[in-house]
């Protein structure tokens, strides 16, 4: 799936994070890291997205919304979890309001550990994501 190489559009979904990871995602857009040079763009609607960047543990209120947003994203799509929270709960581990880590709600393709992860790590995750897309396509053929 060559078409996705260097033209990934990313939608940022906050499922109850502390805003730390979200700020790191924004840092990725700044002149210092500048992901636009790889063709990665942050878009405003899940309908335009190829990759969902999910931050934070999924709080109970967010469960139907997360599922809905996942379904709204057109195929082929990938989910990247940013931050320890989304991977196993992080500092909110076993909190009363959590419905569980992201991969119990929707399928996840790439995990980025860290609290919050560094911007470089986030960029690498998105790069890994498109490698995965390409491999998936080759597997299908």
């Amino acid at each position: 799936m060559k078409a996705f190489k260097r033209a990934l559009w990313v939608y940022h979904l906050n499922t109850g994070s502390c805003n730390g990871c979200d700020i790191e995602i924004l840092a990725v857009l700044t002149p210092r890291y500048d992901v636009e040079r790889f063709g990665i763009m942050l878009v405003g609607s899940p309908r335009h997205a190829d990759v969902l960047l999910v931050t934070g543990p999924v709080v109970k209120q967010m469960v139907p919304r997360v599922k809905r947003i996942y379904e709204q994203t057109p195929d082929p799509k990938l989910v990247v979890v940013v931050g320890s929270c989304g991977i196993e709960g992080g500092v909110f581990y076993e909190s009363y309001s959590l419905a569980g880590p992201v991969d119990q709600i929707i399928p996840v393709d790439v995990y980025v550990p860290g609290c919050p992860p560094r911007p470089e790590a986030i960029i690498e995750a998105v790069v890994k994501a498109w490698v995965k897309l390409e491999k998936a396509e080759q597997g299908v053929r």
């Binding site: 078409a3 033209a7 002149p31 040079r37 063709g39 082929p76």
Partner: peptide, 28 residues
């Protein structure tokens, strides 16, 4: 614009890539 903002910016052929990618996507 990227250069004016002190960024490197996408390559000039980026819009072609975007169009090609959008054509591969599902149409909801």
């Amino acid at each position: 614009v990227a250069h004016m903002q002190g960024r490197v910016g996408p390559p000039v052929v980026q819009p072609f890539r975007d169009v090609r990618k959008l054509l591969m996507k599902e149409n909801i």
